[in-house]
Amino acid sequence: MAIGPEAPAAPQRIVDAVLFDTFGTVVDWKSGVADAVEAIAYRYGFEVDAAEFALRWRARYQLSLEPIRSGAREFLTLDELHRENLIATAEEMGLPIERIEAADVEWLNRAWHRLDGWPDSVPGLTELKRHFIIGPLSNGHLALLTNMAKHAGLPWDVIIGSDVTRCYKPDRDAYLGAARLLDLPPHRVMLCAAHNSDLAAARSAGLRTAFVARPQEYGTTQQSDLHPTEAWDVIARDIRDLATQLRDHITA
């Protein structure tokens, strides 16, 4: 027979790890890339719409991943794909990239390593880190994500690059591979993203889901992902709000 009052039940978390889509969800890629394009254009005396260049560079991103997802092309990191897409975008926009020194082309290509977080990202992640394993579940590779974390002060517990899982979202194995690496069943892992399609793929793989809106990701004319399109497990205003909702669930 037990002696004394019954011990209170331990607080229950709905997940053990909260992983994040990174480009657009955690960091502002458009501003960072446009700033780098503008700096190079100024240095070399080129005329270019830096914001439009950033948008067109990014627009080639998913198209360049598809041959790798389908198995038609061997795995390449985002640095390699970004460089190919940079050259193609420069040709499309009439930017004479052949006149730019190789070191400056490399610096421009690595703009994706030097992106700043949204204002709520670091405080929200810091709060989440108190209760959950946090890290990126991104198509970025380990070096890129590590450099980005150092630049932006992102307090990850773990970084799982696409070069570790050897696949790109929304491939099912990208989500399941992250869960396996953390030794967690998929339902104990949550993906937070500003992109409904990413969350749909994560849910189909068995992960929990959280939506945060980033209506300025593509600038003032953005028309997609302004609102959640499904009843995700959590719908939050930003990462700080996500931290509050998940913390309140623990303490309720």
Rank of each mutant, 00 (worst) to 15 (best):
L55Q: 10
L63E: 14
Q62C: 01
D79Y: 13
A59N: 15
G45H: 02
R56D: 14
W57V: 07
R58Y: 07
R56T: 08
S70Y: 04
E38S: 14
G71S: 09
E84Y: 04
A54Y: 15
R43G: 02
N85E: 12
E52P: 10
Y44P: 03
W57R: 01
F46H: 09
F46K: 08
G71V: 10
R60V: 03
E80G: 01
L65I: 02
E74L: 09
A51R: 08
E47G: 10
A59I: 00
H82K: 04
L78R: 03
I68L: 08
R58H: 13
L55Y: 00
W57M: 04
A59V: 04
E80L: 03
Y42S: 06
V37R: 08
R60C: 03
Q62T: 03
P67R: 14
V48G: 14
W57G: 05
T77C: 07
A59M: 09
H82L: 00
E74Q: 03
L65R: 06
T77G: 11
L55T: 04
A54P: 11
A51H: 08
Q62E: 13
R73K: 05
R73E: 14
R69Y: 10
Y61Q: 10
R69W: 11
R69C: 13
L76H: 07
R56K: 15
Y61P: 01
I68A: 06
F53V: 01
Y42K: 07
G45K: 09
R73A: 11
E52K: 15
R60A: 14
S70H: 05
L55H: 03
V37T: 06
E38T: 02
G45L: 02
V48N: 13
P67Q: 14
R56L: 15
E80T: 06
A72F: 06
E66A: 13
E47H: 11
Y61M: 02
A50T: 06
P67F: 14
Y61V: 05
G45F: 05
A72H: 12
L65E: 05
E84N: 10
L78T: 05
E52R: 14
A51V: 09
L65G: 11
F75V: 12
W57S: 05
A41G: 09
R56W: 06
I68V: 13
R69N: 11
T77I: 06
E66C: 02
L76G: 02
R56C: 12
G45Y: 01
V37H: 05
F46W: 01
V37K: 12
A41Q: 12
R73Y: 06
L78K: 03
Y42E: 05
L76C: 03
P67Y: 15
E80Y: 00
L63G: 15
A72L: 10
R60T: 04
R60I: 04
V37C: 12
A54H: 15
L78H: 02
E74I: 00
S70F: 00
A54N: 13
